[in-house]
Design a protein around this nucleic acid. Structure first.
Ligand code: ZN
Ligand code: ZN
Ligand code: ZN
Ligand code: ZN
Lengths: 161, 161
DNA sequence: AAATTAATGTTATAATGTATCAAATTTTAC
DNA sequence: GTAAAATTTGATACATTATAACATTAATTT
């Protein structure tokens, strides 16, 4: 039996080093299970994304990669991101043209985020009530769902004080 | 008492000329009420957006504007779009970097769309169940909502045959 | 080891969006 | 009615985000 992952609200104090370490370990497991390779570049990009809970732009990542000695061009980053997206290890935040590490990569789920406009934090939520309400509504239109983009912008608890 | 707006499923046959005419009329009313000006450029952009129920990119609009004799530069279109967004006359579809006419501009609502990946149609829905489920969930996190991006991609009824 | 596939490097370019300042138009104030 | 102020539009340049195309390297399979 696997230990339940307690998901801290990322804008508040938490052991982020652990947060990140867990994410990278999950990533290795996922890649092993999917029989795909988490190459050094891909892992590095994932690690950079996990440096915070704020979505990063591709060119932010590119900049970070480059300052670390390595030289990189846009396709390098976009390829790594495409890979990580395909494996469900990161999500794309369409409203920000940015990317965020997935907190729930160990099981299937749809992309649902609360996005703080002040501190920038992205809180990944798993809300069956939302998913169900959407499924129900889509069904009424005879619409079959592929993918959800649920991005709720506002102020997180910490930023309302 | 105002007549109830019957919203046809836009991928199926419907009187789109009427659809468009109604939208433009609503736009004039909204602008009058908000004491803002629906200038010729703004109206033209709105009209172009309403030529179909498929979201249009800013540069698509720009191209259409230019082929119609007028000469236009990107800021012209983006300004018009910003205006129309501010007045709630169009919505931005973040997952497509595109813009679509609002079918519900006569009353307050959040942005919720079903997007067909085959025919490209955007169906604006008004689903209190979704809105409520989101509000409930946000509340649990102490998150106060500004804006929703609800974009459900899949296949519309017509494209499943 | 050779052949095949997958991943990365490299260059160029496409697509989307904004900053800035000048000119014209509309609105407001007198 | 006219001058001043504010809004809107024109025009140029540029910033940001993303992809196409092809060469090279590395890993996997036969
Ligand atoms: Zn953390
Ligand atoms: Zn996730
Ligand atoms: Zn129509
Ligand atoms: Zn709407």
């Amino acid at each position: 039996m696997t230990k339940k992952t307690t998901t801290p609200i990322p804008c508040s104090q938490h052991d982020h080093k652990k947060c990140k370490k867990n994410a990278l370990q999950r990533a290795r497991q996922v890649c092993q299970k999917n029989k795909v390779r988490l190459t050094p570049i891909r892992e590095k990009v994932l690690e950079l994304i996990w440096q915070s809970h704020k979505p990063l732009g591709a060119y932010d990542i590119l900049g970070m990669l480059s300052t670390e000695g390595q030289t990189a061009a846009p396709p390098t980053v976009y390829r790594a991101l495409d890979f990580l997206l395909a494996q469900g290890l990161v999500h794309r935040i369409a409203s920000q043209n940015a990317f965020i590490g997935c907190s729930l990569s160990s099981h299937p789920h749809v992309s649902q985020f609360l996005l703080c406009r002040d501190c920038g934090v992205a809180i990944e939520i798993e809300a069956p009530a939302i998913t169900d309400a959407i499924a129900e509504n889509a069904h009424q239109y005879g619409f079959s769902i592929d993918q959800n983009t649920i991005e709720i912008s506002g102020l997180c608890q910490c930023c309302q004080q």
